[in-house]
Design a binder for these strands. Structure first.
Length: 640
RNA sequence: GCUCUGAUAGCUCAGUGGUAGAGCGCGUCCUUGGUAAGGACGAGGUCGCGGGUUCAAUCCCCGCUCAGAGCUCCA
């Protein structure tokens, strides 16, 4: 039992003495009426708590107001309850699932007979406004399991969750107005605190995230303390739509899809030019330390049985009917690993050769679920910048450092910001626990040695080993997984890989799987969105568009273009329509440079250079000087 | 794969139980332009595919395919 008085330490070091069982609300009130009014929640022992939760022991406390970022999830969680309150008013039979705060807002899952329509969402939003105006207090109560069972007798989803609690565990419920929810909290003091919110979309979602369970109807929304923040967020969503690579891919004529091959891109001439440029860049960076090889696309099932994919991964593989056997006993490769292992094993390797790095840019096929496909970021046919490193145990740390620098250097070349995640053993895996212990420890140690910050993602590893994933953030803050470094002790066993050691005896190498772009398809999608289609000159599908002012100057314009093309510049002369029309078109296609040729330029061998987005500002320069500018930009891969 | 929504001209979209329309793009002609749409005329569509209801279906119903928002999965 706590003593009668407790000592509360404030962030500035002040110590308050209050009766045991006082709440953070009491603390705020004793500091001042202004804070009491502004307080939304508090942090005690590193945990966010509601203002009404009693404090039983001496502790440090920090009161949260709208200024503290930790209060935003509290507001959003309350917004989810307010949403549920509104839904229950309008659809009384709705079962309630979970309704948490998420990074961008909140959602709530409902079990209803008929899915929600956009009109329903508008009605819920209106009803939420009424709940907010009613300013219902959020009341927290502790109940025992038996009482909770009674309270949620009509809510089977809540009852299921309830049964997962230990009998002795503290169960809390929150009530606002008529709405009662099984909930750990915390919440803002009352519904009136929710001022700026919006419901965004409805969608199906499996109960407990399990595809074997029933599908609930999820409503997504977002909420902020300040109107400006909400507006900024909504504007950012609009910006994301504007930059969507699927939209820009069509507008800039880079790639397209056709129902005859779902999940596989048709690259247009412009898109192909960019794809090839990226490929050249990758090859150039790999030239020094990697050995590029090409391996078959089609393999017998024996290979996949040996690799373990036949058992764990077959539903994702495109099986091919073998005409002689009449069986589907061949498959297009979904990854390059086994073929690299086969090649490695075909020769005898000395410890002196290691590490050996085989790199392959071949096309891969994975039969993804139809619903998973999305633009270029999730496709069935793609090319990885794949590599497998064969190395000695004692080389792991050095190799991880090398690969990490190599990967991050690639992202930096495009001005992409990245973050690192360490992913550990998943539930579905091959290999013994001892192997996994060893692999995780080795990889983590190597990652630590790089000195770079990282997050841990438990259970997110590959089925054969732990991995380091590299995520990049695009210019509007979304994160995508691209690169990876995966440590594999399993494949060397399965493929009986060896090297001859200093002792003239065979030893097992370790395998590291590495990708940088992830896939060319996904990487290009990110580049499109990152640059909003305005690619740096070296990468742009068309680098210069030459515009003669009238037919008279076409010959001169073509000469100027030929000079650039001879130096490897991607250039096109556009002769149709009016000058204004062609300038508008070139700007729409986000071509980095326009070179305009009229009487003045034709007579003195110059071009009038107009930069993308620069409006009427232009610079007249000699053809040679313009070529120098371009070649320098392209050579240095300037980000413009 | 699951839930919901959609599919009409090359693109973006409107529209109707009696076999369709706009803007852009495309073609031809006129215009020969100095920095973000010059003008006129014209050609394009079994209204995603297959069934059903109906005198009649692009429209209503069912199935399928593809796409979008999510879920699950993932480079």
């Amino acid at each position: 039992m706590a003593s009668d008085a407790i000592q509360i330490t404030l962030p500035d070091g002040t110590v308050l003495t209050l009766p045991a069982g006082s709440t953070p609300g009491d603390v705020a009130a004793s500091i001042g009426p202004g804070l009491a009014k502004a307080a939304l929640a508090a942090v005690i022992d590193g945990r966010t708590v509601g203002l009404g939760e009693p404090i039983e022991h001496d502790t440090a406390i920090r009161i949260l107001t709208a200024r503290d970022p930790e209060s935003l999830p509290v507001l959003r969680h309350s917004a989810a309850h307010i949403l549920a309150t509104a839904v229950r008013e309008l659809r009384p039979g709705a079962g309630i699932g979970f309704g948490p705060a998420i990074d961008e807002g909140f959602y709530y899952d409902f079990d209803v007979d008929a899915p929600f329509t956009p009109d329903d969402l508008a009605a819920f939003e209106q009803k939420m406004t009424e709940v907010v105006e009613a300013d219902q207090p959020f009341e927290r109560r502790r109940v025992d399991k038996a009482e909770a069972r009674k309270l949620f007798a009509d809510d089977p989803l809540k009852l299921e969750r309830l049964e997962e609690f230990d009998d002795a565990e503290v169960i809390t419920v929150y009530q606002n107005g008529p709405f009662l929810d099984l909930c750990r909290g915390p919440h803002v003091p009352s519904t009136g605190h929710l001022k700026h919110f919006k419901l965004l979309s409805g969608a199906g979602a499996y109960w407990r995230g399990d595809e074997k369970r029933q599908m609930l109807q999820r409503i997504y929304g977002t909420a902020f303390h300040r109107k400006d923040d909400l507006d900024t967020h909504l504007h950012r969503l609009e910006e994301a739509r504007r930059r969507d690579h699927r939209r820009l891919g069509r507008e800039l004529d880079l790639f397209q899809f056709h129902p005859v091959s779902p999940g596989a891109a048709f690259w247009t001439p412009r898109g192909t030019a960019m794809y090839n440029t990226l490929e050249r860049f990758v090859r150039e960076r790999q030239a020094e330390s990697f050995l590029e090889v090409k391996t078959p696309l089609l393999y017998t099932k024996e290979l996949w049985e040996q690799s373990g994919h036949w058992g764990k991964y077959r539903e994702n593989m495109f099986l091919v009917l073998d005409a002689e056997s009449g069986e589907h006993d061949m498959s297009l490769k979904p990854m390059n690993c086994p073929s690299h292992h086969i090649y490695y094993a075909s020769q005898t390797h000395s410890y002196r050769e290691l590490p050996i790095r085989y790199a392959t840019l071949d096309v891969l096929h994975r039969n993804e679920l139809s619903g998973a496909l999305s633009g270029l970021t999730r496709v069935r046919q793609f090319a990885q910048d794949d590599c497998h490193v064969y190395l000695r145990e004692d080389q792991i740390a050095q190799e991880v450092r090398f690969l990490t620098d190599f990967i991050l250097g690639h992202y930096e070349a495009f001005g992409l910001e990245s973050s690192i995640k360490f992913a550990t053993r998943p539930e579905q895996r091959i290999g013994s626990d001892a192997q996994w212990d060893h692999a995780e420890a080795a990889l983590r140690e190597a990652l630590e040695a790089t000195g770079r910050p990282y997050e841990v993602e438990p259970g997110d590893g590959a089925f054969y080993g732990p991995k380091i994933d590299f995520h990049v953030t695009d210019s509007i803050g979304r994160s995508w997984q691209l690169g990876t470094i995966q440590l594999d002790y399993n494949a060397p066993e399965r493929f009986d890989l060896n090297y001859v050691g200093q002792d003239n005896a065979p030893h097992r190498p370790v395998v590291i799987h590495r990708a940088v772009c992830g896939s060319f398809e996904r990487f290009i999608a990110i580049l499109i969105e990152h640059f909003a289609g305005a690619f740096p000159t070296w990468l742009a599908p068309e680098q210069v568009r030459v515009l003669p002012i009238s037919e008279q100057w076409e010959t001169s314009a073509r000469e100027a273009a030929a000079g650039l093309a001879a130096a490897g510049v991607r250039v096109h002369v556009e002769e149709r329509e009016t000058l204004n029309y062609r300038i508008r078109e070139a700007e729409s296609l986000k071509i980095p440079y326009m070179a305009i040729v009229g009487e003045r330029e034709a007579s003195d061998g110059t071009v009038a250079v107009r930069r993308r987005g620069a409006g009427r500002k232009q610079e007249v320069m000699s053809r040679g000087a313009f070529l120098d500018v371009l070649t320098e930009k392209i050579r240095t891969r300037a980000l413009d």
